[in-house]
């Protein structure tokens, strides 16, 4: 999961649902799939929740890129 892209995780979530719904699994497999799916969904939610809003601007200073907070010019936002 750590290495999995969010997209892949979402795909897997759906795949697990399909497998569970297929009815081709025995109870043990179903339970382990269920557990896997719930873990995955928790992880996805965490990724969504834990992201932090950041709006930055990259500026070159002394030949080095520096990341600074970017604030929209309030005057500009009026027009």
């Amino acid at each position: 999961m750590e290495k999995m892209s969010f997209e892949q995780a979402m795909k897997n979530l759906e795949q697990i649902a399909l497998e569970l719904e297929s009815g081709n699994l025995n109870l043990e497999e179903s339970l382990s799939k269920f557990e896997e799916g719930m873990k995955l969904s928790k992880k996805c939610n965490e990724i969504l929740e834990n992201a932090e809003k950041k709006i930055t601007i990259l500026l070159e200073k002394d030949g080095k890129l520096q990341e600074e907070n970017f604030v929209l010019d309030s005057k500009e936002s009026q027009d």
Partner: peptide, 20 residues
């Protein structure tokens, strides 16, 4: 996306309930 995740969770629960 959150809604989608919830939907999947519900599908799991439904499927497992059906199986049980």
């Amino acid at each position: 996306i959150k809604q989608k995740i919830v939907t999947q969770e519900n599908r799991y629960k439904q499927a497992l309930k059906k199986e049980l």
